[in-house]
Write a protein that binds this DNA or RNA. Structure first.
Lengths: 332, 332
DNA sequence: CTGTTAGCGCGTTCAC
DNA sequence: GTGAACGCGCTAACAG
């Protein structure tokens, strides 16, 4: 029995001919929509496996207007938290027979820059894990009926869903944790001041500090990188040597701060100074850091995102806020 | 002046009607192939900008058989070296107006599992950054004329290109570096024994050790993870307490080993024991590790990969081997 | 239940 | 140079 496994492009027409049915019947079979009698189905299935037929998703999309491609717009792939996000998302999507088209929006490129491209592809939906997109860009999606989910970002922009950790609540937890561990003079080492992620965390932190009748000694904002955390902490400590507790907007910043503190300034953690991060990314668990942090519920966030993408109503944008979880290690 | 910016799906036909030319003329204009008179071109361009027309890549692909999508198959996104690879690749590809379709091949899923999917999409080419694919899978690509580049993996499989660091050479450098720094009893902490990456590094290491009249005290192989490095080093040191120099198959393993050595076994690095890694991923530069390592020439590797993808001949598979560079920090 | 017909948006002959 | 006509692989009406 010869197996002509993979000749160049076998189409529905080929299957139809071999099975002696119409091409439309084959289409009904592949799509699962419409009726196909038992004997016809058998002949089709036989032909399909004989020819090694596989539907062409791009052609399917063209005629149905329904793509099975989901766009993911990312900027901070280098920040170790995002790879885990990306990995989980692609896995979840692949399990649903959806494919991931990846768009990079690293600094020279902004989210708005790549929007035209993702639009051109008539994607099924878009997950955006980077700075909030402009309202005009958002509108482009809405007009075309393409669902958008902002991941790890909140927004007031109309028409787009958003899923993120309850950063304000996390900020409060951070304050409690730091104070209870004995910190008396605390500061905040933020990420970008334009990201809701950073500002929300700061807000909750400040609020809760207030509850304890403590005030924030200092706040510095920059970017979500190791390097920035490393530099910023030094200036911060010069200006405010009394600081003995620091809440960092994410674990990357925290790891930079810890390294500067330990290896450049000879501080002990947590004896001299307590450090708290956010995310719980892979590095936080390493023995060299043992960073106490607030873990984002990645799995749930992804599940929600995909749910909204597939079943959410564009007309009623939803904002999901999931609680983070304090992971106690050795840095407080 | 009304700007009907983004009505649902404006096509070549719409442009043609507005410009009072044929749809074929518009097609020639967008593709740049074929002749278009000056006045016609002007009318088209005017209509295009008025309507905000953008070609539909999927339809382009359908009729031309040429896709502008490149598949990237990855497994180890969580290993910090790969995100930087992914970031660079997507940037380079996007600059060329090519889009990235990402496929995840994490353990339950193997490369061969996702091959059918990437095939279905009639992609322009595929870059595979994970375990070598089976020869039957490779053949599927060849039959369809889809160029494949194995990134960071070598192969004897026919029809696929491969770009990687000269791992054998890197292994030799590792031996030299360790020995010159005074190590007398060296061991190798490998990654997966099935990856050419790990075995090539080991081979060069062993060879060069031989040149120095030294033998390898021990070799252990497992996986390219922090956790494995952390555990493996402990067993290794129990069995061979005399070890004072270790070459790790990658920086992830090395960081795990360093942590275990320092925080579980009270060893000093590099005084008591010297550690050498491979890759030069972000963590290696952190103050907490200061890992001496062999940097892979990522930029060049990516450039070569894309070159082969776009201009390489499938009939003559090419194997590129690029030299790594020793980055001296504090761990030897 | 099935086959026929007509598109989806675009590239590509081939006459004019 | 240009446009009419056809086909890429598939879905979605429509009659029968």
């Amino acid at each position: 029995m010869t197996t002509p496994l993979s000749h160049p492009t076998v189409t529905q027409k080929d299957v139809a001919k071999l099975a002696r049915v119409s091409q439309a019947a084959v289409s009904r079979w592949t799509s699962g929509r419409g009726y196909v009698a038992a004997d016809v189905r058998e002949r089709i299935e036989k032909a399909v496996s004989e020819l090694g037929y596989a539907p062409h998703p791009l052609a399917q999309g063209l005629s149905s207007g329904q793509s099975d491609i989901v766009a993911i717009v990312m900027a901070n792939i280098t920040n170790p938290w995002y790879p885990v996000v990306l990995e989980r998302i692609t896995q979840a999507l692949q399990a649903l027979q959806l494919q991931v088209l990846l768009f990079n929006a690293t600094p020279p490129q902004s989210v708005d820059d790549v929007v035209p491209d993702v639009l051109r592809y008539r994607v099924r939906g878009a997950i955006i894990t980077t700075a909030a997109l402009s309202s005009t860009a958002a509108q482009q999606f809405v007009e075309r009926g393409i669902p958008v989910v902002l991941f790890n970002r909140t927004t007031r922009t109309g028409g787009v869903h958003s899923v993120s950790c309850d950063n304000t609540d996390g900020g409060r937890t951070a304050a409690d944790t730091l104070i209870k561990s004995g910190a008396r003079h605390v500061a905040f080492l933020g990420g970008s001041s334009e990201s809701s992620t950073s500002t929300d965390r700061l807000r909750g932190f400040t609020q809760q500090l207030h509850e304890w009748d403590r005030t924030l000694v200092a706040t510095v904002e920059g970017e979500f990188t190791y390097e920035w955390g490393f530099q910023a902490i030094q200036k911060l400590m010069e200006a405010h040597p009394e600081i003995d507790g620091i809440f960092c907007a994410d674990d990357e910043i925290a790891s930079g701060a810890m390294d500067a503190l330990r290896y450049n300034m000879g501080k002990r953690i947590p004896e001299d100074i307590r450090i708290l991060g956010f995310d719980d990314h892979p590095i936080a668990a390493k023995a060299a850091y043992q960073l106490t942090t607030i873990r984002q519920p990645v799995e749930d966030m992804i599940q929600q995102s995909i749910d909204l993408l597939l079943h959410g109503e564009i007309a009623k944008p939803s904002t999901q806020l999931l609680k983070g979880q304090l992971i106690v290690r050795g840095s407080v």
